[in-house]
Design a protein around this nucleic acid. Structure first.
Length: 645
RNA sequence: GCCGAUGUAGCUCAGUUGGCCAGAGCAGCUGAUUUGUAAUCAGCUGGCCGGGGGUUCGAAUCCCUCCAUCGGCUCCA
């Protein structure tokens, strides 16, 4: 007999060889019908895997991330089976589950395949799913495994097997399809009730640009039809929030083929919005002891030779600009740091001057491959809300704290609640990869972790993700489709101070190397605004939005009064306009609602007589009458609450 | 850069297997209407059918090529 301990700490006795599924059945039939996999002593396994020892058991269902993952992984196998039946002779690469569904990389050989074939494949998948094929696990030796796929003629699997240790290889067989796989899998395919193949794309074998490109088919499955419908609705909703669509509709920015791909141009409403963001940050930074600087958009090739960027990225960057007479080479600046290092060197520094914090909204240019360009999130010209802090190693912690406060202020003012903090540290197995002294790394890594803890940030720590020149902390936000985007970043740098030979005089009257901290709370104005648009679906916070108030006179008889209202708002620095078209009220309201103008002030006979306005809030409806001053107070209060930091 | 898809008016989209002067709605313009909480009516303007080349008596439609966009891959200082 063995003892099974469930998450609520109840314990039960079973015969050796009992499966998690049997344990589930014992609890209730309903639960058993929903068990997708099981976590056994922390390891996810098949629900049909016999248990041989005392076990802490957690039954996994669709509500668990691992349950979903199991479902999707099994779905990848099922799709492979369907495809193999429809297209005999195709070869398979890998087919894992991903955050939203699964994919399989397939070499289709001579078959011509496109999304037109999805229908056929989906039907086949559902047909096979209904057969409730069992997923059978089989331990095999390396030789057996190689033998199987040699006979089958699948060189990709053979390559994978060759990288595996003998004795740790398992196959899973479901229906007519056998795959090399670690598992776990569903008990049977019957759990898969709805399927949607979402896209088709090329993907290099093992992610290597030089190797063969396979066809990757993405899909997602659900245990209920209804969940698929909901998922599709969510995708529709996400499409509506797409910043490229909203940016066009709200006239925030544009692209021109003639100007060039990936080169955004900000339209008046977008430019003003961006300017407000910049002003907001500048104000916060001024209080935090930053000084603004301005540097040119190009720099001499020697600047980048000193910084080391030329050696590393010179070939991949835009071609240099050459002066006609002297033949000097200049590069469009891909970052602002080298310029800022030169500013630091402009005069000698004492430890008493530090930290020195210099900030710049610096526009940089980077060559991105054409296929990589994406709306405002991936462009070839963008403006970083950059700043560099030069400080002593002992000041790193306080400076980190200061930067994090700025990031938090911004997130609050813009209503970003759902963000992810990632701390990137050294790879402990590879200490030689990094520049800078052990002592300084220790100090900085420790400081970052402590600051994150003190601020209750719940940060994810990634070992080995640090740059060779220093540890960092990134802030990521999800966009409408759930994709993660890196926004703010704080980065410690031991490299550039070295390369630029930056120094300060310590209290011991010796020369010391300062530490440099790069930081950009927005990341870049372009990417930030893009994520912001999707985050708020175009309904910007009141303080930021282009048009805050639309005054809607009922007819032209009230134009005079509307103008009076407008001038009062303007005196109070409220961005307002009058909709004086000869349209009906319903029309004016509809248009203002569509343009996401937060407040509509309706003025007619009654309002003029009593010196009031009828207020309507976007998305919320009629708020009743306000005296003019009362509305201004209400309005300002709302803004101050957001910006109060 | 690679794989796949797409490209028709400012926007959203129709345009069967190639065949009459390329269509609609919205936006815009003109006029009428002077309006009370999500679309007033009428008329009009507007398209080198992404660019170039080819096949054909004839191309938005078929082929080639380039460009851009979209979904991925690779990349991302």
């Amino acid at each position: 007999m063995i003892t099974i301990t469930l998450p609520d700490s109840t314990q039960k006795q079973y015969e050796v060889g009992v499966t998690p599924l049997q344990v589930a059945k014992d609890i209730s039939e309903g639960l058993a019908r929903n068990v997708l996999a099981a976590k056994v002593n922390g390891l996810v396994v098949d629900a049909l895997r016999p248990l041989t020892r005392d076990t802490e058991l957690q039954l996994l269902t669709w509500n668990d991330t691992e349950g979903k993952a199991t479902m999707w992984h099994s779905s990848a196998h099922l799709m492979a089976e369907a495809i193999e039946l429809l297209y005999p002779g195709v070869k398979f690469g890998i087919g894992p589950d991903i955050e939203q569904g699964f994919y399989y990389d397939i070499d289709f050989g001579d078959y011509d395949i496109s999304s037109d074939d999805f229908d056929k494949i989906e039907k086949k998948i559902l047909e096979l799913a209904r057969q409730k094929q069992h997923y059978l696990r089989k331990e095999v030796s390396k030789n057996e495994a190689l033998d199987y796929f040699t006979k089958k003629g699948d060189e990709y699997k053979i390559e994978l097997i060759n990288d595996l240790e003998d004795g740790q290889i398992s196959f899973y067989e479901s229906g007519s399809f056998t795959d090399l796989c670690r598992g776990p899998h569903l008990p049977d395919t019957g759990f898969i009730k709805a399927v949607k193949l979402t896209s088709i794309a090329g993907a290099y074998w093992r992610g290597d640009e030089k190797r063969k490109q396979l066809t990757r088919i993405y899909g997602i499955t659900f245990p209920k039809k209804k969940e698929l419908t909901e998922y599709l609705e969510l995708l529709e909703e996400a499409k509506k929030r797409d910043h490229r669509k909203l940016g066009k509709e709200l006239e925030l920015f544009m692209f021109s083929q003639t100007v060039g791909a990936g080169l955004p141009m900000w339209l008046p409403k977008g430019a003003e919005l961006r300017e407000r963001l910049e002003q907001f940050l500048k104000k916060v930074q001024r209080k935090a002891g930053y000084k603004q600087v301005i540097t040119p958009h190009i720099g001499n090739v020697n600047l980048y030779k000193t910084s080391g960027h030329y050696q590393k990225y010179g070939e991949d960057s835009f071609r240099p600009i050459t002066t006609p007479q002297e033949g000097e080479e200049y590069f469009l600046k891909p970052m602002n740091c080298p310029h800022h290092c030169e500013i630091y060197k402009n005069k000698p520094h004492s430890y008493k001057d530090l930290p020195m914090r210099i900030a710049e909204f610096g526009t940089v240019y980077r060559y991105e491959q054409s296929g990589e360009l994406h709306g405002l999130t991936r462009v070839r010209s963008f403006t970083q809300d950059d700043a560099h802090i030069f400080c002593t190693p002992d000041q790193v912690k306080d400076e980190f704290k200061g930067v994090m406060d700025i990031v938090m202020k911004i997130f609050k003012a813009l209503d970003f609640e759902d963000f992810i903090t990632q701390i990137s540290l050294r790879d402990p197995n590879n200490p030689d990869k990094y520049i800078g002294s052990e002592e300084n790394w220790q100090k900085a890594e420790q400081a970052i972790i402590e600051v994150a803890e003190e601020r209750n940030l719940n940060a994810v720590i990634e070992y080995g993700e640090a740059a060779f020149y220093g540890p960092k902390m990134d802030f990521m936000v999800r966009d409408a489709l759930g994709r993660k985007w890196q926004l703010g970043t704080i980065q410690v740098d031991y490299n550039l101070p070295e390369r630029f030979e930056l120094e300060y005089n310590g209290s011991d009257n010796q020369k010391h190397r300062p530490v440099m901290i790069h930081r950009a709370p927005f990341g870049s104005m372009e990417r930030f605004v893009a994520v912001l648009i999707e985050h708020c679906a175009g309904k910007f916070p009141l303080w930021l939005t282009p048009d805050q108030v639309s005054i809607l006179p009922i007819s032209e008889k009230y134009q005079k009064y509307a103008e009076k209202v407008l001038s009062l708002l303007e005196i109070n620095e409220i961005r307002a306009q009058i909709d004086d078209r000869s349209e009906k009220m319903g029309r004016k309201i509809r248009d203002a609602e569509m343009k996401r103008i937060p407040y509509m002030l309706i003025v007619g006979e009654k309002e003029e007589a009593e010196n009031i306005v009828s207020v309507r809030k976007q998305g919320e409806g009629d708020m009743g009458s306000f005296a003019l001053e009362a509305f201004v107070d209400h309005f300002n209060k709302e803004i101050n609450e957001m910006l109060e930091v």
